[in-house]
Design a protein around this nucleic acid. Sequence first.
DNA 1: TATTTTGTTCAAAAAATATTGAACAAAATA
DNA 2: TATTTTGTTCAATATTTTTTGAACAAAATA
Lengths: 181, 181
Amino acid sequence: MRSFLPMKQALESDFTPPVEALSPKNFQVVEVESIDLFVRIAQFIGFPKSFGEIYGLLFTASEPLSLDDICERLNMSKGSASQGLKALRGVHAVKTTYVPGDRRDRFELEGNIRLLMQGFLQERLEPGIRDLGVRIESLSSKVNALQNGEKKRYNERLGKLRNWHKQAQKIMPAMERLLGG
Amino acid sequence: MRSFLPMKQALESDFTPPVEALSPKNFQVVEVESIDLFVRIAQFIGFPKSFGEIYGLLFTASEPLSLDDICERLNMSKGSASQGLKALRGVHAVKTTYVPGDRRDRFELEGNIRLLMQGFLQERLEPGIRDLGVRIESLSSKVNALQNGEKKRYNERLGKLRNWHKQAQKIMPAMERLLGG
DNA sequence: TATTTTGTTCAAAAAATATTGAACAAAATA
DNA sequence: TATTTTGTTCAATATTTTTTGAACAAAATA
């Protein structure tokens, strides 16, 4: 893996007290740990590692970064960065920003983690739950064509499953309110 | 893929009315659809497909199945079935049952989907959330060593993240109650 | 005890998924 | 308009994950 952060921050002020002179190094540590954190979150919600890296880098950035910045700092191909940014923009986790005097796109976080979670909840979890409902109902109707014994056994199990699915649907709004609001 | 269900059910009764004579075929359809359903659920919570297949097959089974039964009906290797069953037993989704006159292990579902979810919530989601907390706190402490400007910017973002994490922790018990209870 | 049956483990193969990089198109500049 | 810069797409490659199957150990049977 390549170096993570340039010396920019250190060079921006003329004077810093001794303990703060260590800042660039500390900043690198913090940056690496931030990226690591978001890589975990990404993997947790089923995104590839690279998406987490990009998000983590933007989390630490003090200004919007260009595609090239991202590739360079994360040692990642342009293709990956482009795809990752596209996906992250898709879930409203990242937005494009105009920076005067630079004709390249610049990227920064859009809102906070809640927005990212909202995307996940609404575009992955919710449809998933809905799909389960469709499948359970389809199964239920087909079970009616079975022999009595089989039908009874199935319906018992399906009933519990249907019940559980209802609960899952019931808790969704609360999750969206608390985590995605 | 191989045939899914033997003719057993059809052969168990001497007479069935015309419409029910179709039962074996219907049963196969239902079985395939059940397995499909649980494959989705498995993939949803990050288990391999084969785990879902096993669970789905056991969901449809009228009696505890042996390892060989499972391999045969799902056209799956012994190794896969063994590993899948081990994992499913680990999350209390499947249990071993003694069947007189058969020295092979027999497997059946343990409780309903709630138990499986409980396993997922307690053994995956909860530790994941806890790990995030640890990482966020580690980051927070390291941010204190940064320069003032950086520190301020970071703490703003970290504050929101910490806040979000608290909400996530808060909603866990409700999820466990509704989905895993 | 020797043989068979049963289930587990793990290295290797296969499958699924993510990443790369070169070709391309679109937009900006010369 | 020709050239350069920028970002996207997608086939090829690399990586990760899952599955297989043969070797093994444990338990049951002969």
